[in-house]
């Protein structure tokens, strides 16, 4: 279960970034996740929610974009995209396939909103800070 350690690294990066952004609240971290990253996304999101809450960011969520891998069929030569690390060829059904994919685990971006309240993400516009600036 190294997902908890990964979640903490992500939370740390968010904290560092937010130090430079007074008056803003983070609402979403976007992650790029390779098929071979060996990460359980649900466990990572759970761990991250805990870390985010501890930092006072109740509405901060973690989203992941799955980077697909290529499945090459040895039997029929078809090249297809896959989001799981193993599987049979969707064209001919053969199990003689080879996988070309990445193990990337990258924080792509952080979405922040104006305002310091923890409700800023959910009640956009309700709080005076969120409607006022920018």
């Amino acid at each position: 279960m190294h997902e908890l350690a990964l979640a903490e690294s992500i939370a740390q990066a968010v904290r560092r970034t937010m130090e430079e952004l007074p008056g803003r609240t983070p609402v979403q971290v976007r992650l790029r996740l390779g098929v071979l990253a060996a990460v359980d996304l649900a466990a990572l999101q759970f761990g991250f929610a805990v870390a985010a809450r501890e930092s006072g960011w109740d509405g901060l969520v973690l989203e992941a974009v799955c980077v697909p891998a290529e499945l090459l069929c040895v039997e029929c030569g078809a090249r297809t995209e896959t989001r799981v690390a193993h599987g049979d060829c969707p064209v001919c059904g053969s199990s003689r396939t080879m996988l070309h994919g990445s193990d990337e685990l990258e924080m792509e971006s952080l979405e922040v909103v104006d305002g310091n309240t923890e409700h800023a993400s959910r009640n956009d516009g309700d709080s005076p800070e969120a409607t006022g600036a920018a």
Binding site: L6, S109, E111
Partner: peptide
Amino acid sequence: MPQGTTEIPLKQQVLHEN
């Protein structure tokens, strides 16, 4: 994107410290 929302690129490996 709603008003007041900014997307900040991070482009950083989660395990960059390791």
